[in-house]
Amino acid sequence: MECIIVEDLRKHYGQVKAVDGLSFSVERGEVFGMLGPNGAGKTTTVECLIGLIKRDSGRVEILGRDPKVDPVGVKSRIGVQLQTAAMFPRLTVREIVKLYSTFYANPLGADEVISLVGLEEKANTQTRHLSGGQLQRLSVALALVANGEIVFLDEPTTGMDPQARRAFWEIIESMRSKGKTVFLTTHYMEEAERLCDRVAVVDQGKVIALDSPAQLIADNFSEQAIEFVHPQLAQDDALSFLPAVTRRQTENTTVILYTLEVPRTMEALLQRAREIGANVGNLTVRTATLEDVFLKLTGRRIRE
């Protein structure tokens, strides 16, 4: 059963088309990711979906309701985390989580949520004394305390250290096992690949690909990638014609060669390097990722 339906969603700010005809739908119990660079329209999409701003056109249905028509009805059944992490500066973590819990009919316990995001030690600390990463975790706690049927998370792990990020991934896994629907935006590939059942890759307000991470990669690449940094070789057109190479991406001094047969390409690459007297040091061979998918579809990397 679909619990989020978006059809041809549009939102313009003056001349800027923040969201330019997005369509997708999310199944109940799914962890759905929106992956794209900053400015792709992810935040605007979330804000239209949760009834914070009004869309210009298109159809949106959240749990069978239109957020433009019945924003309170939608808001009372979902949990939301926004990028604005600030809270009442002189209230403690526990006080704020408790305050937010009073906004919902069937909230989780404040202490339960605080320990979920690992802020037990800071429960009695005023939020103005929290670090950026801690604020981010508090922000996630406020989305969880609502105990909504869908949880919307806008860039939830930005500013978190790797440890906190892994802890956050576990929270999402446990929500999946409880059958909750999660809608998250991110510009971290590994996050999308690891967490999401399906990913919508967005750029400039449009969905450019939509599928499970594995399928997205398989559809776009049967190749593996050889990646290295070298100023001289980056200028060398001959690399594109090495044996088994299907695609070549060059960005400044970084070169990625997608190959069907790593050994053949590697041998030819090293020979070519010797010919022109270049020394290729830092060289990696890897399978393709969502980053490669994005690069292939847009010609740009997600993080610029």
Partner: peptide, 17 residues
């Protein structure tokens, strides 16, 4: 302060009027 720090906006995402 609430407006500048977008706390108002955050509260706007809850069912609270």
């Amino acid at each position: 302060e609430l407006r500048e720090k977008k706390i108002i906006k955050r509260l706007g995402a809850t069912p609270l009027p």
